[in-house]
Amino acid sequence: MTLKQYFKDIFTGVKSLATGMRVTGGYFLRHHKEKITEQYPDNRDKLVLAERFRGEVVMTHDDNNEHACTGCTACELACPNGTIKIITKFDMTPEGKKKKALDTFIYHLELCTMCNLCVEACPTSAITMAPTFEHSVFDRSQLIKKLNKPGSKIREGVE
């Protein structure tokens, strides 16, 4: 290496470092204007989650405490993890016929991968994904949920 090359290397080296320092220096001076990190529990109130965000499976109930689930088990079959268990019962129709209906919709949140396949499979759109994410509990058994509300029944006209 010639002496000239040696000094040239030092010069380009220092110059490249200065270029990088300019970028970081720029951020040092501007950082209070473009803050992008948010501290999590502090921003809880203004946290906006996308409406499609898949956080957990819920069953939609209307004001009369009625849902649209017929107990057809299509979602149970579509689920890759065995997260859903449908227990059905037989209701009596006014005409005195037996009719299959949903008894309990058991949902294992701890097994769910939020893949949305059950929601896609449901023919009556009885279940949806809810944009929630704070699922931690102290005991695993609390993650096993019953999705149909107590006393709820199927909406009129849903087949």
């Binding site: 996308a50 499609r52 965000f53 898949r54 939020m114 893949c115 949305n116 896609e120 994904m129």
Partner: peptide
């Protein structure tokens, strides 16, 4: 993070999207 936000809005998830399904995509674009 900007890309993740875009993904979250359209696909509903940030990392494990499961958005491509046989025959197309799961939802329409946001």
């Amino acid at each position: 993070e900007m890309i993740n936000t875009i993904m979250e809005e359209t696909c509903g998830a940030r990392l494990t999207m499961n958005y491509m399904v046989p025959g197309g995509v799961m939802f329409d674009l946001h």
